[in-house]
C-alpha cells in the first residue's frame, strides 16, 4: 500500500510539470498585454517598455519559464503585476477557503444524496422514488450561478437573513455551500439509487433477508457496503467538479477564494496569479484522485488484497531469485 502511494506521488511530479508548461504557454498566448492593461490607454511607448523591463516580460520565453519553475518548486509564484503583492501569500490565504467550501459542499451532498438514493432504491418506482426523480432532475439541470442569484434574492435581499457575499463567519458559507452542493446531491442520489438497485437483487441480500435480519441491517450492512464503490467514484468526480465549480459560485458571492482569484488574474492578464492558482488546483485535484484510490482499498477488501497480493508476489519472486 505504501509503495503504491509513493509511486502515485512520484507520478504526480511529471504531471504537475506538464501542467505548468501548458498553463505557462497558454497564458503567453492569451491576447492582451498585461503592461498595457496596467498602465491604461494613455501610457507612452517608453513607459510601457520600462515597465516590461521591470517585470522581466521582455526576456526570452525559456528564461522566464525556467525562473517560474525554479520559484514554483519552492512554492514561490512571484509577485502580482497589478497589486504588487506576493502571489504565494495570497494563495495560502485563499486556498483554505476554497477547500473548506468544496469540502463542506461535498459533505452536504453526500449526507443528502446517499440517503435519498437509498430511499429511492427501496421504494423503486413508487411515489417517493418518482418525486425524488423529478427533484433530482430539476437540481441537476439548474445552473449553479442562477440558483446562487435566486438564493441571494430570497435570503439576502428579501429576508435579510444572510450576507449576500464576502467572507467572515460561518454565515458567509451557508449560501455558497447550498448553491454548489445542489447539483452534486442529484448526481450522488442517482448513482446511489442505480447501484443499490443492482445490489438489492443479489443473492446475498436475499439470504440476509431470509435469515430474518431487519431491513435496516440488510440495507445498511449488506447492500450499502457492496454498492459503495461506484458511489465513491461519483463523489470523487463531484468533488473535483466542485473544486472547479466553486469558481462560478465564488464569483457570484464575491467569495475571496482561489477561483475568484484565478478569474481576476485571467481578466487582468496577471499571469503569476493564474499560474500559481492553477498549479494549486491541479495539485489538489491529483491528490484527491489518489485519496479516492486509497478509500477504494479501505472499502473493498478485494481491492485491498490486490496491493498486499503484489507485495507477496514480489517477496516470493525475491525468495525464488535468492
Amino acid at each position: 500500500m505504501l509503495r503504491f502511494i509513493g509511486r502515485r506521488l512520484l507520478q504526480m511530479i511529471p504531471i504537475l510539470l506538464v501542467v505548468a508548461v501548458i498553463i505557462f504557454t497558454l497564458m503567453e498566448l492569451v491576447p492582451g498585454d498585461p503592461v498595457r492593461i496596467m498602465l491604461g490607454d494613455f501610457a507612452t511607448e517608453a513607459q510601457v517598455e520600462e515597465e516590461r523591463e521591470r517585470l522581466g516580460l521582455n526576456r526570452p520565453f525559456l528564461e522566464r519559464f525556467w525562473e517560474f519553475i525554479k520559484g514554483a518548486v519552492q512554492l514561490d509564484f512571484g509577485v502580482s503585476y497589478i497589486t504588487k503583492t506576493s502571489v504565494s501569500d495570497e494563495l495560502i490565504e485563499r486556498f483554505p477557503r476554497t477547500l473548506k467550501l468544496a469540502l463542506l459542499s461535498i459533505c452536504v451532498s453526500a449526507l443528502f444524496g446517499i440517503p435519498i438514493g437509498i430511499l429511492c432504491a427501496i421504494k423503486a418506482n413508487k411515489l417517493p422514488d418518482r418525486i425524488a426523480l423529478v427533484l433530482t432532475l430539476l437540481c441537476n439541470s439548474m445552473p449553479s450561478f442562477w440558483l446562487a442569484l435566486l438564493l441571494v434574492l430570497l435570503f439576502s435581499v428579501n429576508l435579510n437573513w444572510l450576507p449576500s457575499g464576502g467572507i467572515g463567519g460561518a454565515q458567509y458559507y451557508v449560501l455558497p455551500v447550498i448553491s454548489s452542493s445542489i447539483g452534486s446531491i442529484a448526481g450522488i442520489a442517482r448513482q446511489t439509487r442505480a447501484s443499490m438497485l443492482e445490489v438489492i437483487r443479489a443473492d446475498y441480500v436475499t439470504t440476509a433477508k431470509s435469515k430474518g435480519l431487519s431491513q435496516k441491517a440488510v440495507i445498511l450492512k449488506h447492500a450499502l457496503g457492496n454498492a459503495l464503490i461506484p458511489i465513491i467514484t461519483v463523489i470523487g468526480g463531484q468533488f473535483s467538479f466542485l473544486m472547479g465549480g466553486t469558481t462560478i459560485v465564488e464569483s457570484v458571492y464575491s467569495f475571496p477564494g482561489l477561483g475568484l482569484y484565478i478569474i481576476s488574474g485571467i481578466n487582468n492578464r496577471d499571469y503569476p496569479i493564474v499560474r500559481g492558482g492553477v498549479l494549486y488546483i491541479a495539485f489538489t485535484f491529483s491528490f484527491i484522485m489518489l485519496l479516492i484510490d486509497i478509500i477504494y482499498a479501505f472499502v473493498d477488501p478485494r481491492i485491498r488484497s490486490q496491493y498486499s497480493g503484489k507485495k507477496k508476489k514480489k517477496s516470493k519472486e525475491a525468495e525464488a531469485a535468492a
Binding site: I15, L16, V19, I23, L26, S240, F241, M243, G244, G245, T247, I248, I262, I263, I266, V274, V278, I281, A282, F285, S286
Partner: peptide
C-alpha cells in the same frame, strides 16, 4: 489534472 470548467475557462 485540471477541473473541466477551469480548463475550459483557460
Amino acid at each position: 489534472a485540471f477541473p473541466g470548467i477551469l480548463l475550459a475557462i483557460t
